[in-house]
C-alpha cells in the first residue's frame, strides 16, 4: 500500500505510434536491488526486426534489465509493453534463454525433455504433453544439430551442447521477441557459429532478439543494433550510430584502454 502511494514519479505513458507497434517499448524503467538503483530511467524501443546487443560493464544492470522486462523481478517505476500490450498478456510472444549456470544439470531430464519445455507455454496449464509435442521438439533439436543426443541426460552434454539445447528450447517457444542472457559464454567455436546462424535465421524470419553480450570485439559482427547500459542507458540504436568509441568510453569509463577502443571502431564503422 505504502509502496503504491510512494510510487516513483510516473513517466509519460507509452502512447506514441512507434511504441505501440514495437516488439518491446520501455519508458522510464527503474529497478532497485537492496535499496540501491541498478537500472535508472531507462527508455528504449526495440527495432521491429533485428538483433540487439545489450553491452555494458559488469554490474551495469544488463541481466536485471532483461529480468525486469520479462516481469521476473519487481520494478520501481516505468512502463513496459510488448507489441503495445502488457508483458503478462503477451507471454506467448516472448522467448527466453536464461544464463546457463542457473539450472541444476543433474536434473532427471533428457535433452528432448528440456526442448519440450519450450512448448509448455503453448500447451497451457494442466494439459499434458502429447506425442505431437515431442515430435515437434525433436525437429527443433535437429535445427541446432542435436537430434542424435535427444535421449541423453542433460548433465552428460558438453557446455556447448547444453547451450544448443537451450537454444532449441527457445526456438520451440516460437516467439516473436527473444531475450537471451549471455548465450555465448563458455561455448566452443562450433557452437558459437551455430548460435550465430540461429540468430540470423530468427532475424530473417522477422523476429527481434535482445541479447546480453559480453564480448565487445564480436558484438558488431553478430548484431545490428546496440543498447549500451551503464545503470542508465548510454546509447541505443543501429550499431554504426550507437556503438561508437565515445559511447563505449562513457559506459566503461577508464577501464577500456584506448588501444582496445581503437581496435573496435573500424569494426563498429562497418
Amino acid at each position: 500500500m505504502i509502496a503504491k502511494l510512494l510510487r516513483l514519479q510516473p513517466h509519460q505513458p507509452l502512447t506514441s505510434e512507434a511504441a505501440k507497434s514495437a516488439p518491446l517499448a520501455i519508458q522510464g524503467l527503474s529497478v532497485a536491488y537492496h535499496h540501491k538503483p541498478v537500472v535508472w530511467d531507462l527508455s528504449f524501443i526495440a527495432p521491429a526486426q533485428g538483433l540487439v546487443a545489450v553491452v555494458g560493464p559488469n554490474g551495469a544492470g544488463k541481466s536485471t534489465f532483461i529480468k525486469a522486462a520479462l516481469g521476473l523481478i519487481p520494478k520501481l517505476s516505468g512502463e513496459i509493453t510488448v507489441y503495445g500490450k502488457s508483458v503478462a498478456s503477451q507471454r506467448h510472444l516472448i522467448g527466453y534463454v536464461p544464463q546457463r549456470g542457473s539450472v541444476d544439470w543433474d536434473f532427471p531430464a533428457s535433452a528432448l525433455d528440456v526442448v519440450t519445455m519450450g512448448l509448455y507455454g503453448k500447451i497451457g496449464w494442466l494439459r499434458p504433453v502429447r506425442k505431437a509435442h515431442r515430435a515437434a521438439a525433436l525437429g527443433y533439436l535437429e535445427q541446432v544439430g542435436m537430434a542424435d543426443f535427444a535421449d541423453r541426460q542433460i548433465g552428460q552434454l558438453s557446455g556447448g551442447q547444453q547451450q544448443r539445447v537451450f537454444l532449441a528450447r527457445a526456438l520451440a517457444q516460437d516467439a516473436a521477441l527473444y531475450f537471451m542472457d549471455e548465450p555465448f559464454v563458455g561455448v566452443d567455436a562450433a557452437t558459437e557459429r551455430a548460435i550465430v546462424n540461429v540468430l540470423k535465421d530468427l532475424k530473417d524470419q522477422g523476429k527481434t532478439v535482445i541479447c546480453v553480450h559480453h564480448d565487445l570485439q564480436s558484438a558488431p559482427d553478430y548484431f545490428d543494433h546496440a543498447l549500451i547500459l551503464n545503470i542508465r542507458p548510454v546509447a541505443s540504436g543501429p550499431m554504426a550510430e550507437a556503438f561508437t568509441a565515445e559511447n563505449l568510453q562513457h559506459a566503461y569509463g577508464g577501464r577500456l584502454a584506448p588501444s582496445e577502443l581503437s581496435g573496435l571502431i573500424p569494426l563498429a564503422g562497418q
Partner: peptide, 22 residues
C-alpha cells in the same frame, strides 16, 4: 499427475517457468 508438467519445469528452471506464465 495434473501438475506434473508445471512441477517439472518450475523445479528445473524456475525463471523460465515464470517467463512462460507458470
Amino acid at each position: 499427475v495434473a501438475f506434473f508438467k508445471e512441477l517439472k519445469i518450475s523445479t528445473f528452471d524456475p525463471e523460465m517457468a515464470s517467463s512462460l506464465g507458470f
